[in-house]
């Protein structure tokens, strides 16, 4: 076998790749094709499903019926991404440049939430943010907040939950790009542009952009598919497209609509990623030249 490979070295990488690729083809690509087919079914579970290209009408129908949830998902995911970015940048900056010997510890705390159960974390926030919970209860009893004030079951709670859960995905890539920056560049810039603010704007920020880019994708993508935060922290008015897909699939057994929605969500995400890459990519190029 080894002798055979020595004669044809070109085969080795293919051989190494084959098992993983075969697995992904069988359990990622093939199911996607199955789902495409299911989105073109008609019928109900009781009567059975039949395939026809004419059922493509399911797509515009589903898009029309669930346009609110789609738009809400995009809005919440975008806001969560911006919130994460705003919160994560200063933290990543501190860890990269100001933390000294605490750097490892701080990095560790950033990823610590991943070591407890995701659901338990969301439920913990549900406890903390409860209408009469730790946070609001005392504020209400001393009269700082009106009795009917609440955070749970509002868009704020859902965006808060999403932001919290994907926050480390934003901090880590930004930290990595900041850490890579050659500090001598910044020092030189401080001399050139006379001032830390300008140096930050002209050197640090542009060089951190790849991290910002990666972090934003890592937050935006899972946020688009979220249903757990919306389910546990939200209300009827905060249902996201993830909730609809989940309940169409698992509760209503409406496979065609659920599959069509999944496909449109996936297409939407890929389009968003592509546009984002184009916009940010060209920007980066320009700042690089300038």
């Amino acid at each position: 076998m080894i002798a055979f490979l020595r004669r044809r070295p070109g085969l080795l990488p293919l051989l190494l790749l084959a098992p993983a690729i075969a697995w992904l083809v069988a359990f990622y690509v093939y199911p996607a094709i199955q789902m495409l087919q299911a989105s073109l079914w008609s019928g109900t579970l009781e009567t059975g499903f039949a395939f026809s290209w004419a059922n493509a009408a399911t797509y515009p129908e589903a898009l029309d019926r669930y346009s609110d949830q789609f738009l809400r998902s995009i809005l919440y995911a975008a806001v969560s991404t911006v919130v994460c970015l705003a919160l994560a940048f200063p933290l990543a900056y501190t860890i990269a440049y100001r933390a000294g010997r605490f750097r490892t510890l701080l990095l560790f705390i950033v990823i610590a939430p991943f070591f407890t159960s995701f659901l338990l974390r969301v439920l913990a926030w549900k406890t903390v943010l409860g209408d009469d919970g730790f946070l609001l209860g005392p504020l209400k009893s001393i009269g700082l907040l009106p009795e009917e004030f609440r955070i749970l079951a509002t868009p704020i709670a859902v965006i808060f939950g999403i932001s919290y859960n994907f926050f480390p995905f934003m901090v880590l890539p930004i930290y990595v790009s900041l850490e890579k920056i050659d500090r001598r560049l910044v020092e030189a810039a401080k001399d050139l542009y006379a001032g830390p603010a300008r140096a930050f704007q002209r050197i640090t920020l542009p060089l951190a952009l790849p991290g910002v880019f990666a972090g934003s994708l890592l937050v935006f993508i899972p946020a688009m598919g979220d249903f757990v935060n919306a389910e546990l922290l939200g209300s009827v008015q905060t249902r996201l497209i993830g909730n609809v897909i989940q309940s169409r699939f698992l509760v209503n057994n409406d496979y065609p609509t659920a599959a069509a929605l999944s496909f449109m969500l996936m297409a939407g995400i890929l389009a968003a990623v592509f546009i984002y890459a184009r916009v940010l990519g060209t920007d980066e190029l320009e700042t690089g030249i300038g």
């Binding site: 409860g130 209408d131 009469d132 609440r150 749970l152 079951a153 209300s235 009827v236 008015q237």
Partner: peptide, 23 residues
């Protein structure tokens, strides 16, 4: 009342948790 937010949630048995907690 669903549209104006009076109704907070549709539940199965889980209304128990909501009403005990005071939500």
């Amino acid at each position: 009342s669903v549209t104006d937010g009076t109704v907070r949630a549709f539940t199965g048995n889980d209304y128990k948790e909501l009403i005990v907690k005071g939500d």
